[in-house]
């Protein structure tokens, strides 16, 4: 296969899948947030963290896609093309996992905080730890691109 085509598949994965997971995360957390917002609007400023962390997943994808785009002219061998593809897969899987984590713990966090606002500081851990998963993926994807 053509190295450029393989790298482009990696690039498409790197931008497409994170955006999809960000969208799903925002759909789940955003709707929960809207529900709570009508009852307790004073909590919105704190709980918006779930939606923003979901949005950040798309930005990680964007970063990797952007770096791959910059590397495209250097990709001439199959090895380099494989690395581009793999980095796309890494960030895809990482953001999907992080997205799943944020969606589930985020919507529960929103419901729990609405019930008892004091639990926010301990429950938010679930969301931020899920989000850290994406950072790990990002780091490794980043290092793989560095090898091209």
């Amino acid at each position: 296969m053509d190295p450029i085509l393989i790298s482009l598949i990696g690039l498409a994965l790197a931008i497409g899948v994170p955006i999809l997971s960000a969208a799903i995360t925002i759909i789940i957390c955003g709707t929960a947030l809207a529900g709570v917002g009508t009852e307790k609007p004073e909590l919105l400023s704190r709980l918006i963290i779930t939606v923003v962390l979901g949005e950040a997943l798309a930005i990680y994808g964007l970063l990797i896609a952007f770096m791959l785009l910059g590397k495209l002219p250097d990709i001439t061998t199959m090895d380099a093309a494989n690395m581009a593809l793999i980095s796309g897969i890494i960030i895809s899987v990482a953001t999907v996992s992080a997205g799943a984590g944020i969606s589930y713990s985020g919507s529960s966090l929103i419901a729990a905080t609405a019930e008892n606002p004091e639990t926010f500081s301990s429950n938010v851990i679930g969301v931020v730890l899920s989000e850290a998963l994406a950072i790990y993926g990002l780091l490794i994807a980043f290092m793989v691109i560095g090898q091209i």
Binding site: I59, Y60, L62, L63, F66, A132, I135, Y136, L138, L139
Partner: peptide, 15 residues
């Protein structure tokens, strides 16, 4: 490791 997001988000901003 979590502080590596300083790098990631710095690069995103720059990019």
């Amino acid at each position: 490791m979590s502080y590596s997001r300083l790098m990631a988000l710095g690069l995103v901003h720059s990019a």
